[in-house]
């Protein structure tokens, strides 16, 4: 049994394939999360300031994306864009590179769209939770609006948002597995290919589960350290 394992994972190179899949998963997760948070910051600000029409639009987006399964969002983005992207790529003569890069790009866009919706809620909640007294103190010191925002509101809000953003990240890294259904070669897809060819699904899906678990566990540990760093000088609880 252990001999079989060695042959499968090392000599036939499936272990390496899984590992490469895990790096793609991590890349898609990080890029998606980064893009999602960058998009979420201005949207959360619009929502927080309660700008008439924009605020409702942001709310609608966030309720829609958080209310439907991630799989459905991925189908929409993938099937909805494949036709004209292909037409565009053929017109400019990039057919081959478009075919290979396409699932990755759409994967990142889909993951970003989902993580953005959740990040908006986290950031908005954090902005709302900044104590009013602090803002009044800043006002009584006659600080200009942008100084108040960048030196008082934002540092406190980001500290408050940290825990929520960690939850969003944990969810995002797990959601990347969904992109495998449209053919992106990340961890889950590599495991499925290996399982299909070697006919040992139990081994490879469990290996994929193990790798996902390692990813979430490591990032959780890193997060705990970050949180301790940002919360220095504040009492716990």
């Amino acid at each position: 049994m252990s001999f079989d394992l060695w042959v499968l994972l090392v000599e036939r190179g499936w272990g390496f394939a899984l590992f490469r899949g895990a790096t793609v998963t991590l890349a898609v997760g990080l890029l998606g999360m980064l893009a999602g948070v960058i998009m979420a910051v201005p949207l959360a600000l619009l929502r927080w300031r309660r700008l008439p029409i924009f605020s409702q639009a942001v709310d609608g987006y966030s309720i829609l994306v958080r209310g439907v399964p991630g799989l459905l969002v991925i189908y929409l983005l993938f099937f909805g864009s494949i036709e004209w992207v292909q037409r565009l790529a053929t017109a400019f003569g990039y057919q081959n590179s478009a075919d290979s890069a396409y699932p990755f790009v759409i994967g990142v866009v889909a993951i970003a769209a989902i993580s953005c919706a959740y990040s908006i809620e986290v950031l908005r909640g954090a902005l709302d939770a900044v104590p009013v007294g602090l803002l009044e103190a800043a006002k009584s010191l006659a600080l200009p609006t942008h100084v108040t925002f960048f030196r008082v509101t934002l540092p406190i809000a980001l500290r408050l948002a940290l825990g929520g953003l960690n939850n969003v990240w944990q969810m995002t890294i797990k959601d990347t597995s969904l992109v495998s259904v449209v053919g992106m070669q990340e961890l889950m897809r590599s495991a499925a290919i290996a399982a299909g060819i070697t006919r040992s699904p139990l081994l490879f899906y469990c290996a994929a589960a193990g790798m996902f678990f390692a990813l979430t566990a490591i990032s959780q540990t890193l997060f705990s350290h970050t949180e301790r760093f940002f919360n220095r000088g504040f009492s716990r609880g």
């Binding site: 797990k174 969904l178 495998s180 499925a192 139990l202 979430t216």
Partner: peptide, 23 residues
Amino acid sequence: CAVFRGTPMLVQIFVIYYGLGQL
């Protein structure tokens, strides 16, 4: 709880449906 919360549900569903049938 840590295992089921730390892995995607897609993996869990595949292990159960495709993986366990192998035994």
